[in-house]
């Protein structure tokens, strides 16, 4: 335990922690993100209602404005209800769960794929490098949302109808992940080529370590800094991409609505005066994407020695 405390002390004393404490933007962004993440993770425990339990739904509650008592049932909802009488606050918390889960999973998938391919391309060079990077070059010329829609469409066609809703989330993760790996691969490839030429890699080769052991034991830990930054910014992009796909109706199904789905549903009622159905999910999405993005920007600057 002493070593843990020691490590904690070192971490709190580090330059990064110092820069963090001095950056109001980073502190605010982290706080907002943490609140949203806690709301998402603990949604089943803290949400006032379970919006997906038909037993608790009352259609009479539909279109209740925020903070007003329903004219039929007399119930009050903090952020109002949607067309089916679901509590907007609860649907947002459950929607956050889907959005965050898809975002994090897509980023992890993209990062693992991209980092592995980037390491291989950078370390071995030659034809491995050529093949991987040419694929990356071609893919990057297409907008990632287009690729995601393409993959989503193909996957949807391949899955049986009854499994579609269940598969939708995973297909979403796969399609966003596949459209984002290029950035990780490019960054890691460049960093790997720099690290590979350093003498500690030569020393490891002299110790008869295998290329895989050198790649993952030596090079990988030293190229993770930029990956961390990319991952944070990528999370914001993935969340937006998921919302876009869901908004376009090719993402999360209405039975498992993400923030994007909620916005799509909400826009139908915007001009009827029921603004809250769209407004609150949209603000939440904005807050989530912005806080993650600001955090990523700050991290990039803090980790860049040239800007210190």
């Amino acid at each position: 335990m002493a070593s843990f405390n020691q490590r904690l002390q070192t971490a709190l004393d580090s330059d990064l922690a110092f820069a963090f404490k001095r950056s109001p933007v980073a502190m605010t962004a982290t706080t907002i993100f943490a609140l949203l993440a806690i709301a998402a993770v603990l949604a089943p425990l803290i949400a006032p209602y379970n919006p997906f339990d038909p037993a608790t739904l009352n259609l009479m509650n539909g279109f209740t404005p925020p903070m007003e008592a329903n004219e039929f049932t007399g119930q009050t909802f903090t952020l109002g209800t949607d067309d089916q009488g679901r509590d907007v606050l609860s649907t947002i918390m459950y929607g956050l769960r889907i959005s965050l889960f898809v975002g994090v999973a897509a980023v992890l998938f993209a990062a693992v794929l991209g980092v592995t391919l980037g390491l291989l391309a950078g370390y071995f060079g030659g034809w491995v490098d050529t093949v991987v990077m040419r694929i990356a070059d071609v893919q990057i010329t297409f907008p990632s949302i287009l690729i995601a829609m393409l993959i989503f469409g193909v996957a949807k066609g391949l899955t049986p109808v009854e499994a579609r809703d269940e598969m939708a989330i995973w297909v979403l993760i796969l399609s966003i992940g596949l459209s984002e790996w290029v950035y990780y691969a490019r960054t890691v490839r460049g960093a790997t080529m720099v690290e590979k030429s350093k003498e500690y890699v030569a020393a490891a080769r002299l110790a008869n370590r295998s290329p895989l052991a050198i790649m993952f034991g030596h090079v990988l830990p030293n190229v993770m800094g930029p990956v961390l930054v990319l991952g944070t910014i990528g999370l914001a992009l993935a969340i937006i991409a998921e919302a876009t796909l869901s908004y376009l109706g090719v993402g999360a199904p209405p039975t498992q609505p993400s923030l994007g789905t909620l916005i799509r549903v909400g826009q139908d009622y915007l001009f009827n005066g029921e603004w809250w159905i769209l407004f609150f999910p949209a603000v939440t999405l904005l807050a989530l994407a912005l806080s993650v993005n600001l955090l990523g920007d700050w991290l990039r600057d803090a980790l860049n020695p040239r800007l210190r």
Binding site: K198, E199, Y200, A202, A203, A204, L206, H218, P221, N222
Partner: peptide, 12 residues
């Protein structure tokens, strides 16, 4: 064995 020039780059 080999001892390298840079005391910085030669160790992970």
């Amino acid at each position: 064995q080999m001892i390298f020039q840079s005391p910085f780059a030669s160790m992970n």
